[in-house]
Amino acid sequence: MADNKKIEIFTNILQRNDQIAELTQMQMTEQGLLSINVMGAPGAGKTSVILSLIKEMTEMKAYVIEGDIESDIDTKKLREQGIETIQINTHGACHLDAPTLAAALQDLRPLQEGVIFIENIGNLVCPAEFQIGEHIKMLVVTVTEGSDKPYKYPLAFEKADIIILNKIDLLPYVDFDENYFMAGVRGLNPEVLVAKVTAKQNMGIKEVAKWIENKTTLISQELYL
């Protein structure tokens, strides 16, 4: 009978993912590309928000990486608008991870400075747990999802750098309690910008575009390094 030897290792299980994420983020910074990890439930309006933001930011080169479990419907929609888009199909995986994004970037080879939107898998839980190489986490939520979401999915709200509250046009038809929602958001993330948006009508998009443009200036000054 051999002896049991206990080795204390205290090893972060996500360390390999996080190392690749850091590397990706550094490469993006060097290229002058601001990378935005767009997260939210299926149907929240991630693609719609990305589209209207790109239309608003005419001065800036924009790339998109579309994460979906299957299909390339959103990618087609974006390419029809002349936007350089790469499709990632995770075939069942519930989130994008750093190695998957790194591989997709090899294909896209973004050359110009600007911004790259990475639409994560529609899911309010898993994407929040994985760094992928983003500078910014953008969370898209809607008034139709109900005001209790910060309490039910705290991690996504805690980690977001900007929260888009989308489908404001539907407020009259739902029982969304904005005070309760904001109390939850502020508890988790006191400083975060919460932008009220109706992506379908481009309402509120200007403010978000300004915020992003300001962040890209920071990138070009390499403040993120």
Binding site: D3, K5, K6, I9, N12
Partner: peptide, 10 residues
């Protein structure tokens, strides 16, 4: 979320 220790045969 980490591995605190592992036990091996030594």
């Amino acid at each position: 979320f980490y591995i605190k220790s592992i036990e091996v045969d030594l």
